[in-house]
Write a protein that binds this DNA or RNA. Structure first.
Lengths: 197, 197
DNA sequence: TCCGGCATACCGACTGGTTAGTCTGCCGGT
DNA sequence: ACCGGCAGACTAACCAGTCGGTATGCCGGA
């Protein structure tokens, strides 16, 4: 009864973000009215526009949060003290698990990114690119040291893997036959198998 | 000067579909007004509602077209007279090429499917499922005959590959360093490599 | 050959409803 | 008494879909 996103105990900005995240994921950004968001958060428009400059700012904040989280985790795995194939496997599996744990954010991310204005979109792309490049560096490291095949450009490898992560929000169901960790292990395994020399 | 989608020679319904496809892909379904579509097609609302029941029908028609096309092609490749690893490779590469050739349809498909009403959405899912299962059957056939690894469930393999196809509309640029065929060959190769026993 | 009847194809003003964002003001704590 | 935090009515814009109307061409009968 005291969770961080509780309907009436958490601070108003968090409640607004939580409500917006859920509604954006369920109905899409354009289909969700500001009125719905404030009702779900138990406040009114005055509160929303007190904390956020616009509906779009709300969307951008959702992005920023998930990007920060994933970047931190990737950095941790990539910097670990382990063979490169282990670090890549861990990072690849972790992004699957955290994506499944935040499927709402993921659907929003991939379905609504283009709803951001050009400037904000650019900002998100920059962050996203940093993430992509960190991941690519891992692949390239393994390719240079000979543990990964060089048959495929590292860029494409990264897009291949993130394609499957991206796709999770389309098909993964928590009540399906596979747990998060199982899916993550399978997908990481597929990546590593494809990279065998 | 006599292409099928010419601005003023093609039949009105085709022009409307072509305009809608482009605009939906560029701006998204909700961001595109019926007024914009009819202006791009060089007609007026009267014409649109003469041929289509609603804006949503237009979206559904875009789906139906691309689904028919891809199902036909998959069936052809799957029914061919060749070893299963060859048939899977051909099918996997072909879906990449045709997706790139119709990137607009692809972005619409993956970004706007959830804008369809429940009934129409269901209809699309049924068609999509048929496609998915045909592809999965290929994987399972190879797994049974021992040419593919059975480490990963066939369903997941299919979602893995279609994740990367899905993702194409996010990163592929026609003016990039790789041609359609090159990307297709690489992605099909990754799939087959991941399936090596 | 001409004509009246009718269907198809299309036009564009209009309507009813919705929406993001604004603004004025209240209220409770310091 | 003041101010951050918020309420909620209001506005200006927009949009999907409707509807009465017009133009074009075909078809069968006189």
């Amino acid at each position: 009864m005291a969770k961080a996103t509780d309907g009436d105990t958490a601070p108003v900005p968090q409640r607004l973000l939580a409500a917006a995240t859920r509604l954006f994921a369920e109905q899409g950004y354009d289909r969700t009215s500001v009125q719905e968001i404030v009702e779900a958060a138990g406040v009114t428009k005055g509160a929303l526009y007190h904390y956020f400059g616009s509906k779009e700012d709300l969307l951008q904040e959702v992005y920023a949060r998930v990007l920060r989280l994933q970047q931190e985790r990737l950095d941790a795995f990539a910097d670990a003290d382990a063979p490169v194939e282990q670090r890549l496997r861990d990072a690849a599996a972790d992004v699957v698990v955290t994506t499944i744990e935040n499927l709402d954010d993921a659907s929003i991310f991939f379905r609504s990114m283009h709803h951001l204005s050009p400037e904000k979109n650019k900002q998100v792309r920059v962050e996203r690119r940093r993430y992509h490049e960190r991941f690519r560096a891992l692949v390239e490291e393994g390719q240079r040291s000979g543990v990964f095949s060089t048959a495929t450009p590292a860029d494409l490898i990264v897009d291949y893997h993130f394609g499957s992560v991206h796709h999770l929000s389309t098909w993964y169901r928590p009540d399906g036959p596979l747990s998060r960790q199982e899916v993550a292990d399978h997908l990481a395994d597929l990546l590593l198998r494809a990279l065998r020399p």
